[in-house]
C-alpha cells in the first residue's frame, strides 16, 4: 500500500505517525488515529484503515475489527453536525424521548441518518455524564443542556441555516470533522471559551458558600490508624460484588 494510492495526503500520514509516536507502543495510537481519519475523510474509509494498518504494521482486518467496536467511528458519511440526543433512562424520562421523536419528525430522518442536505446526522446517544442537566443533547460532542422539543428544533434549524451556535457551556460549535481532529490530539483554539462550570455543577458550592460551610482547616501531615490494614480487612469493608471480586483478584496476585 503506497500513500499515493489513497485519498490521504502526506501531511495526514505524517500526523498519523506523530500520533503513534506519542505512545511507548505505537499501536496505542490506533483510537486517536481513527479519529484523525474521520476528520480528514468524514468517516472511517477503507483508505483510512489501510493507512493505519500500514503505519502500525497490522492487517486491515485487525484495524477494521477495532473500528467496528467503537460507536464513535462511522462507516457512513456524517453530516457537518452530529446531533446526539441522550435517551438513557434519566434523560429519556426528563424529556429526551420526546425530543428525539420530535427531531426525527422535524428532520425527516431515522436514527443514525443524515438529512438530505448533508448537514445534520441524528443519533440517540447513551448517558453523556451530564444528567444534572437533563434532558441533554450533544452537538459534535459539545453539551446542549436542559433541552426541550422546541429548543431542539430551533437548534437544528440554526445549524442547518449556518448560524453561529454555541454550546450551553460556552464554546462555539465547530464542524464534526474539526472536532474529530481535537479528539485525535490536535487542539483547536476554543479551550478558553465558556465558563469553568455550568450552573448545575455549582449548586452545591453555592449553598455551601451561603451557609458558610467548608471542609475542615488543613493540618500538618500526620498518620492515623489505617482503616484497612490488610486486603482481607478491606474486602470486609467493600460493599459491592465488584469491589469484592476486584479485592479477591488483587489479593490473589499478592499471594502469587
Amino acid at each position: 500500500m503506497t500513500q499515493e494510492a489513497t485519498g490521504l495526503g502526506d501531511a495526514t500520514y505524517a500526523e498519523l505517525r506523530e500520533i503513534a509516536a506519542r505512545y511507548p507502543e505505537a499501536r496505542s495510537g490506533l483510537l486517536p488515529m481513527l479519529h484523525l481519519v474521520q476528520s480528514v475523510e468524514g468517516r472511517v474509509t477503507p483508505e483510512g484503515i489501510e493507512a493505519c494498518a500500514d503505519i502500525l504494521g497490522l492487517s486491515t482486518a485487525d484495524v477494521s475489527g477495532v473500528a467496528t467496536f467503537y460507536t464513535m467511528y462511522k462507516r457512513r458519511p456524517v453530516g457537518d453536525y452530529h446531533v446526539g440526543v441522550c435517551t438513557n433512562t434519566l434523560c429519556a424520562v426528563m424529556g429526551g424521548d420526546a425530543i428525539f421523536e420530535r427531531l426525527k419528525e422535524h428532520l425527516d430522518v431515522g436514527n443514525d441518518e443524515t438529512t438530505a442536505d448533508g448537514k445534520v446526522t441524528l443519533e440517540h446517544v447513551e448517558c453523556n455524564a451530564a444528567c444534572d442537566y437533563a434532558p441533554v443533547m450533544m452537538v459534535n460532542w459539545e453539551f446542549m443542556d436542559n433541552m426541550t422539543p422546541q429548543s431542539a428544533t430551533q437548534l437544528v434549524d440554526d445549524l442547518r441555516e449556518g448560524k453561529e451556535v454555541r454550546s450551553t457551556r460556552g464554546p462555539r460549535i465547530a464542524t464534526w470533522r474539526e472536532i474529530e481532529r481535537v479528539l485525535a490530539g490536535f487542539p483547536d483554539d476554543r479551550v478558553d471559551e465558556g465558563p469553568g462550570a455550568g450552573p448545575a455543577s455549582l449548586v452545591g458550592l453555592e449553598i455551601a458558600r451561603e451557609q458558610g460551610w467548608t471542609a475542615p482547616a488543613g493540618e500538618a501531615s500526620g498518620t492515623t490508624g489505617s482503616p484497612a490494614d490488610s486486603a482481607a480487612e478491606s474486602a470486609a469493608l467493600a460493599d459491592t460484588g465488584r469491589a469484592e471480586s476486584e479485592t479477591r483478584q488483587e489479593e490473589g496476585h499478592d499471594d502469587a
Partner: peptide, 20 residues
C-alpha cells in the same frame, strides 16, 4: 463534626478561568 457540605474538589469551580 464537619459541615454538611465540604467543598474541596469543587471549591474552585466558580473561579474566573478556573481551568487555568
Amino acid at each position: 463534626m464537619p459541615d454538611t457540605l465540604t467543598p474541596v474538589l469543587t471549591s474552585d469551580w466558580a473561579e474566573d478561568q478556573s481551568w487555568k
